[in-house]
């Protein structure tokens, strides 16, 4: 079954930062920050979206390439903070 949480994050990134792109091109492991898709302002927007949607708070030091460079790691970080996020 596709992961609903991941799909929502993916939809947000597609709509905000990759308009017109074929959804199949953005995979679970596509590098987002190191791949030039999310710059620093885009990363902040993504964090604000996630915090608002899932009632989680990112610590400042978590907003980095280690935690947010692809969909898998983003979802992992959200679930660690809010296991029921979907």
């Amino acid at each position: 079954m596709p992961d609903q949480l991941m799909q929502k994050i993916k939809n947000f990134i597609m709509e905000e930062f990759l308009p017109g792109e074929d959804a199949d091109e953005l995979t679970e492991t596509t590098p987002l920050i190191s791949g030039g898709i999310l710059d620093s302002i885009a990363t902040l927007k993504l964090v604000m979206f996630v915090e608002e949607q899932y009632g989680v708070n990112f610590e400042p030091h978590e907003v980095d390439k280690e935690n947010l460079d692809n969909l898998v790691s983003i979802v992992r970080l959200i679930r660690a903070k809010n296991p029921s996020a979907a």
Binding site: E21, D22, T30, P31, G36, I37, D39
Partner: peptide, 19 residues
């Protein structure tokens, strides 16, 4: 090339502020 591919290509060839 897809948008993702071309952005990645840029990230490998240009400083990030030039993408």
């Amino acid at each position: 090339p897809s948008l993702i591919e071309i952005k990645r290509f840029c990230a490998e060839n240009l400083p990030l502020y030039m993408i």
